[in-house]
């Protein structure tokens, strides 16, 4: 899935990359973030996510941990290999160990599914807002 780039690009360089294997989830998160005026790209599996990351440096990655082909840890590792600590991750997971996973991947925030849309939006905007552009 290619980057939509429909909305205003708040941060000039790169879009927010949403990685989730559930197409409905991807759609929902994309809408939520685009409503905030963010440019959103999506990926449905780990490998696609890594390809997208290689193609363009994302401003932030919203990362589900259980992914086909390459799991969330793999994606996080690829991201770190490519850009170091520069690209923040917001971790999304359905199981009960989000905090630990967040520590392991170096994610800046984490959400349990199902989460409040506001929480997602706030987390993403806060992290992007902290970053000098």
């Amino acid at each position: 899935m290619a980057a939509a780039g429909t909305g205003r690009t708040a941060i000039g360089r790169g879009a927010v990359l949403v990685v989730d294997d559930d197409p409905d989830m991807r759609l929902m998160m994309r809408w939520a973030l685009e409503e905030e005026g963010l440019s959103v790209a999506t990926a449905g599996d780990g490998r696609a996510a890594l390809a997208r990351i290689a193609e363009q440096r994302p401003a932030l990655v919203v990362l589900d941990m259980s992914l086909p082909l390459v799991d969330g840890y793999g994606v996080a590792q690829g991201l770190r290999t490519a850009y170091g600590e520069d690209v923040p991750i917001v971790l999304v997971t359905a199981d009960g160990r989000a905090a630990e996973k967040a520590r392991r991947t170096g994610a800046r925030a984490y959400l349990h599914k199902p989460f409040e849309v506001d929480d997602l939006v706030h987390a993403v905007s806060r992290i992007l807002g902290e970053r000098p552009s």
Partner: peptide, 9 residues
């Protein structure tokens, strides 16, 4: 949980 998360969102 995934569908629920979607529904909720």
């Amino acid at each position: 949980k995934n569908p629920l998360a979607t529904i909720k969102g």
